[in-house]
């Protein structure tokens, strides 16, 4: 009997735990949005300075690495599409293939995975070590709601910066593809880029942006909620950081698939 009920009980506990985690994350989302809109009325305003600081850390500081990876992915897509479409003699379709796959898919995905690794983990580590050293308690007893002070600025900054980074990554990736593919297609890079502009419609970029907004919410909520639930000292902080990154990337990829399914029907 034990052999049967044991795994069942574990499954049940894991399910309850996962549901509780999602509920907690959802309540953090609602609370931060509430503080952002109405916090100033109860003496808990979200500070612009904190938002800008987070925007710098999440967005501006990520520019070099996002450029590098987006450029590389652009070149990689150029190589693959020229090889694959060349088999059918359809090389001229490379431009549209790169343009659509970058704006709809890769720009948002690459950026989100990078930001999850950089900033999702940083949020989890920062809030985790703050809970361990009672700094979160200290904020609360000073009369500063930890969600308002720590979560809301990060959420707002992420919601602004991740879409911006995504547009930037789109541009850099297409530029990378142009540099590689233009000679192979016997056109100038400028002509390649102009053709891309002609082929893209706003809906393609909109699709990437919509995704990136969802990814922004996922990264922030997973980062902060794992951070707040840290227990067990420095080791716990390390575990939370890893957990935040792995969970964010899993959720990003799952959400991306679901989005692609519904947006391309």
């Amino acid at each position: 009997m034990e052999a049967l009920t044991g795994p069942l009980a574990r499954l049940g506990r894991a399910t309850v735990g996962a549901l509780a985690g999602m509920g907690y994350a959802a309540s953090l989302l609602v609370e931060s949005l509430w503080f952002a809109v109405a916090g100033w009325r109860v003496g808990q305003p979200v500070r612009w300075r904190a938002v800008f600081e987070q925007m710098r850390q999440i967005g501006v500081d990520a520019l070099p690495i996002v450029s590098l990876l987006a450029f590389t992915v652009g070149i990689m897509l150029g190589i693959q599409f020229i090889a694959a479409l060349g088999e059918f003699g359809a090389q001229s379709q490379v431009v549209i293939a790169v343009a659509k796959s970058v704006t709809r898919e890769f720009g948002a995905l690459i950026t989100a995975i990078l930001v999850a690794g950089r900033s999702g983990s940083a949020l989890a580590a920062r809030i985790g070590s703050m809970s361990v050293s009672q700094e979160v308690d200290a904020l609360a007893v000073i009369g500063i709601e930890p969600v308002r002070y720590l979560v809301a600025p990060a959420l707002i900054a992420m919601l602004v910066m991740l879409p911006l980074l995504t547009v930037f990554a789109d541009a850099v990736a297409i530029f990378g593809a142009a540099l590689y593919s233009a000679p192979a297609l016997d056109v100038t890079p400028t002509a390649y880029l102009l053709q891309t502009m002609a082929l893209l419609d706003p809906g393609d970029i909109g699709q990437g942006l919509a995704k990136s907004a969802v990814f922004a919410v996922l990264i922030t909520l997973i980062g902060v909620s794992t951070g707040f639930s840290v227990s067990g000292g420095a080791e716990g902080v390390g575990r939370a950081t890893t957990r935040a990154v792995v969970l964010s990337i899993c959720w990003i990829i799952i959400a991306d698939m679901v989005f692609s399914f519904f947006l391309n029907r």
């Binding site: 703050m130 700094e135 200290a138 009369g143």
Partner: peptide, 24 residues
């Protein structure tokens, strides 16, 4: 209420065991 709680918290001070200064 949140407002009352904030009023109470403005009138108390707490020194935690490890200090709990914000390290940033």
């Amino acid at each position: 209420s949140e407002r009352d709680k904030l009023e109470v918290r403005k009138r108390i001070g707490v020194s935690f065991q490890g200090g709990a200064l914000l390290t940033s």
